[in-house]
Design a protein around this nucleic acid. Structure first.
Lengths: 103, 103
DNA sequence: GCAAACTGGTTTGTATAGCAAACCTCATAA
DNA sequence: TTATGAGGTTTGCTATACAAACCAGTTTGC
């Protein structure tokens, strides 16, 4: 009951950041989403969403696919398998931590 | 099941930061701890612990009491009632989020 | 008694992060 | 032809985390 708390110190910060946690969690369930969908779902600004996605991509957690839908650009994002694994680990750790926090 | 995830965006960042979450959780259970105890429990460096404690104090979440024990300085920290409340709220939110993350 | 080393921290320096405003490219409207 | 808007990205600013360096006081070695 102490170990799980202390383990939080080196939690995966790429996912722990609230904005990215929302993004990753969303992607985890939908499997694929475009920029505008994420924009609506998360309520973030475009700039903020863009930079967080870039960071997740750089970390290898999301794959970003730029395409066109009838001349208008479309950015499709999906969680990579590394991202899925990382999310599952993060979730498991967090769950243990929360449990520990309850006594 | 979507609301709890999105709510994460404005989670209490003073507590959400892993280092401080460990500190706050520790204090939540012991009710009072000195600097050296926290240092051992958290495994942080002195400088890091010091600045996080200062931040928690500035936010009104911990009360810091500097005293002496036979000539050697002793810094005693305890969670304020605001801190306890904030922690409980954070924990509750996090718990809901984790639950939502599972399906 | 005096320097060296240690205790219990705090301050400083640096590198990174988050965020929104400003910007960019292309397409359509006027 | 200019203007307007969609879909994003880059820039600029502020704040943050972290450890190294520092500091005041105490004990130890000689």
């Amino acid at each position: 009951m102490k170990q799980e708390i202390r383990a939080l110190v080196d939690v995966d910060r790429l996912i722990h950041e609230p904005a990215r946690l929302v993004i990753v969690t969303t992607l985890y369930f939908v499997e694929a989403a475009d920029f505008l969908y994420l924009l609506r779902e998360t309520g973030m600004t475009k700039g903020n969403l863009s930079s967080h996605l870039a960071k997740l991509e750089a970390g290898g957690y999301v794959e970003i696919n730029k395409t066109y839908r009838e001349k208008i650009p479309r950015t499709i994002c999906r969680l990579s398998s590394a991202g899925r694994t990382a999310f599952q680990q993060y979730r498991a750790r967090l769950k243990k931590a929360v449990t520990s926090m309850e006594g």
